[in-house]
């Protein structure tokens, strides 16, 4: 009985920890498929967390907070997209700058609004919303289907994005822009427009991921609370081989790896907790070496285009 409880708690934590990664990684999948690697994802997540916190605080509604978080994430991505797509700057460097700027800027806003010593912020939270029928499934029901509503967004987005990428003309154009932008442009595809749009979508989703962190997990905001999730999301995209369905799986797998530390501690394994903290990353390395090996990134990923400026 105790074991069953531990298992349920483990599954619940896996989903809870995996969802923000899934949201951010699904957006990143879209932008990488169009040829843009957004290292600034972390900046969008932290902006989304602060935007979500401020929005929820101002209106008293966690739902408004999520929308505000999406807007904040999108605003950060807009800066990134302007530089990378329109000014053709280096994607890695620009993304790094955007992440650092996002972390710094949110800290400044937070401190000026709430002071440096302030007591912990308490926010309206995104309450779990059990899906009728599904939440009653034995075993996995509560873990998968009694979660914050943002969770279901991730569930729905994965098949939706898969359909968009592989079954629609837009998806074909996005993938062509990521494989060979010259050929795509010659066929009449608006490569830059597409790339800006996918970057903005990725930013908005990363913003929702950030809002989820602030509003569904903790009900508070703290500086640097994104804690590298933007970078992990980029690894998740690779792990999911740029396929939205696999990316969702990979994000949940990563969530499970993170949740495992809690489960093992609960079960009384007395090993340094730092070791557990490292566990997901070790798993990622192993998975990258074994499973991704033959998967191929979009050929034009991270390359400036057009090559000769203009």
């Amino acid at each position: 009985m105790a074991d069953a409880a531990v298992l349920t708690a483990f599954l619940e934590a896996s989903v809870r920890l995996g969802v923000p990664l899934a949201l951010a990684a699904l957006g990143e999948t879209l932008s990488e498929r169009s040829g843009v690697i957004n290292i600034g994802l972390e900046g969008s997540i932290i902006a989304g967390a602060l935007g979500g916190a401020l929005g929820a605080l101002a209106t008293g509604s966690a739902g408004v907070g999520v929308v505000a978080g999406a807007a904040a994430g999108l605003a950060v991505a807009l800066v990134f997209a302007l530089f990378v797509v329109l000014l053709n700057t280096d994607q890695i460097i620009t993304g790094t700058a955007v992440t650092l700027a996002g972390l710094g800027f949110t800290a400044v806003v937070y401190q000026s609004r709430f002071g440096t010593t302030g007591t912990a912020l308490t926010l309206p939270t995104l309450d779990p919303w059990p899906v009728p029928l599904l939440a009653d499934l034995p075993g996995v029901g509560t873990a998968l289907f009694a979660q914050a509503p943002t969770t279901y967004l991730a569930y729905l987005l994965a098949p939706l994005l898969w359909w968009l990428l592989f079954r629609t003309e837009w998806g074909l154009e996005i993938r062509a822009a990521g494989e060979d932008p010259d050929a795509a442009a010659a066929a009449g595809v608006r490569v830059r427009t597409l790339r800006v749009v996918t970057c903005l979508a990725a930013g908005a989703l990363a913003g929702v991921a950030g809002a989820h962190l602030a509003l569904a997990h903790t009900g508070t905001f703290s500086e640097g609370m994104s804690a590298g999730k933007g970078f992990i999301a980029i690894a998740v995209v690779v792990l999911g081989r740029w396929n939205p369905l696999l990316v969702l799986m990979a994000a949940l797998f990563f969530g499970a790896a993170s949740a495992l530390q809690f489960a093992l501690q609960t079960l009384g394994f007395d090993v340094g907790y730092q070791l557990f903290l490292a566990f997901p990353y070790v798993l990622t390395l192993l998975a990258l070496a074994g499973w991704v090996g033959r998967a191929r990134a979009p050929a034009a990923l991270a390359l400036p285009w057009p090559r000769d400026g203009a």
């Binding site: 079954r167 629609t168 003309e169 074909l172 154009e173 494989e179 010259d182 050929a183 009449g188 050929a299």
Partner: peptide, 28 residues
């Protein structure tokens, strides 16, 4: 084009479909 403007990683059919928007963006 002299240096063909085709996307190597895609099938011939997808290359033929690219950029035409016969289905208004959606239906491929």
């Amino acid at each position: 084009h002299q240096h063909f403007a085709l996307v190597d990683a895609m099938t011939v059919l997808d290359n033929l479909a690219l950029g035409r928007r016969r289905g208004g963006g959606f239906r491929l």
